[in-house]
Design a protein around this nucleic acid. Structure first.
Lengths: 267, 267
DNA sequence: CCCGTTGGTTTATTATATGAACCGATGGTT
DNA sequence: AACCATCGGTTCATATAATAAACCAACGGG
């Protein structure tokens, strides 16, 4: 592996749960030599990607803000999707969110809450979603190239609830199902009492790059409400893709058109 | 220079003006060998910091969005400053903005417009500001450690208007003046007819990390309005610092207190 | 048909990254 | 107070990774 990759890999250890890490800890976590880790972090620090606190711990630096602003100016992903997500949340009365595939991981980039329920599903930006336990993950996984599916399935999985799928076989069966209907659904697999519906997003090459999803308490994702949510999520996905110059593969487009025209969600 | 630094330096060539760059162009711009450039870009791409368009040009990738969200979750710089800037813009009727020092450069991180004027100063996120031609730049430069001042002054400067200061001598004289009053002011040095007032920001170590500024058409930055803007900008800066756990050096605090208590801007 | 340019690849050479051991400082524990 | 573990950071011989010139094939005018 290249030195640059090693340095950039160090950034991955900073998460919402652990956003400040000391040198020795980071060296241990990443399995790098302490001296190497120090040198790499110093280099990241010189460019503002990392900064050090008073307590000498490292954290993500301010340079990423400039890069993110530049990214949004170049490809307005988040800014373009935000109003669509807000409309989706308002219309469904539930939590809407969008995740993108970044370097093989599914990252939450934006979300919107609905005001009309006391109980709602809460989200965090920059969260990394497990493929096997979320509808977004399954929606994306099902539409990935075979090799990426295989490498993703080869990763270790953890059971977040009693309902989480763990065996490759059942996940692959679900992937077939997801691909056959054009959207994905999970209930109580990520967290108990949380269910969600997800629709994949594609770029201009018809390659799957993420998903739009609506998450709700399991008890509210039934019957007519559920059917409505499925329709609206598909519409939101197509809208976001048109804003970003993406397009679903024709096979998926056909599935969606069928669902939208019959104005009813299939089994 | 380390390999990682070389790779990260490549990111700096992506600007608001030039946000997509081809391989040969980038190799030329950065002075790196084309093969090296390719390898480094591929590595950045593997981590999502860079992505390639259909036309094979490179651009900033989606991973920076995750990092930026994580940064804001760790240190809510932008999110915390935004309401203060909006209030400042509303109260002054002009454009307010905040810039931070990132890896030796001054980067615009947030701004807010006022609704009440047809003519206003426009801003862009992620812009890099020249120290010698902006009030924010001078405010920061004046409060930097001597060695950083020297290295900044050693950089080449360009004259953006006939009024832009270019000689080190006049810039250093201005720095003394800025440090003596605790804030900075420029008129027609960045762009003709644009004037601005800036107040430095400090972190918890009392090290200067950026500035808050109000920019207005030169004709509107006079008399009572100017005095009011100076007061409000100082108040906004102290507010932002208290939100972020920073504090100005006692010398600067004294200057500000004097200005605020006499409720009048000094010459 | 040619010529210049593009993105990308190969190769021997060389410069850079690496990691064990070390340092001084800090903070509990006995 | 002596001890010990751990912290962030440094040193230096060794080994690995980065480098750059030359080379592709493909594309687009003139």
């Amino acid at each position: 592996m290249g030195t640059t990759s090693k340095a950039l890999t160090l950034l991955d250890y900073f998460t919402r749960q652990q956003h400040e890490i000391g040198l020795s800890d980071l060296a241990r976590l990443s399995g790098t030599n302490k001296a190497t880790c120090f040198r790499l972090m110093t280099e990241l620090q010189d460019h503002g990607l990392i900064e050090q606190t008073l307590a000498k711990t490292y954290r993500i630096g301010p340079a990423v803000l400039r890069l993110a602003a530049l990214r949004e100016a170049t490809v307005p992903t988040r800014d373009a999707a935000m109003p669509v997500l807000q409309a989706l949340a308002r219309a469904t009365g539930e939590t809407a969110h969008m995740s993108h595939l970044v370097a093989g991981r599914l990252v939450t980039l934006a979300f919107a809450y609905a005001p009309n329920h006391a109980i709602k599903v809460m989200m965090e930006d920059a969260d990394v979603l497990p493929f096997h336990a979320t509808s977004s993950g399954m929606a994306v996984l099902a539409h990935l190239p075979k090799d990426q599916q295989a490498s993703t399935l080869a990763l270790p999985r953890i059971g977040l609830t009693p309902n989480t799928m763990l065996e490759s076989g059942s996940i692959q069966a679900e992937m077939v199902q997801v691909k056959a209907v054009g959207w994905a659904e999970t209930a109580d697999t990520f967290e108990v009492d949380v269910a969600s519906v997800a629709v994949p997003l594609f770029d201009c090459n018809a390659a799957c790059i993420g998903a739009v999803a609506v998450a709700a308490p399991t008890t509210r994702l039934h019957g007519a409400a559920r059917a409505d949510i499925i329709l609206r999520t598909i519409k939101a996905a197509t809208e976001i893709m048109s804003l970003q110059g993406g397009a679903a593969p024709v096979t998926v487009q056909r599935l969606w058109r069928a669902i939208l025209t019959q104005e009813r969600a299939p089994a």
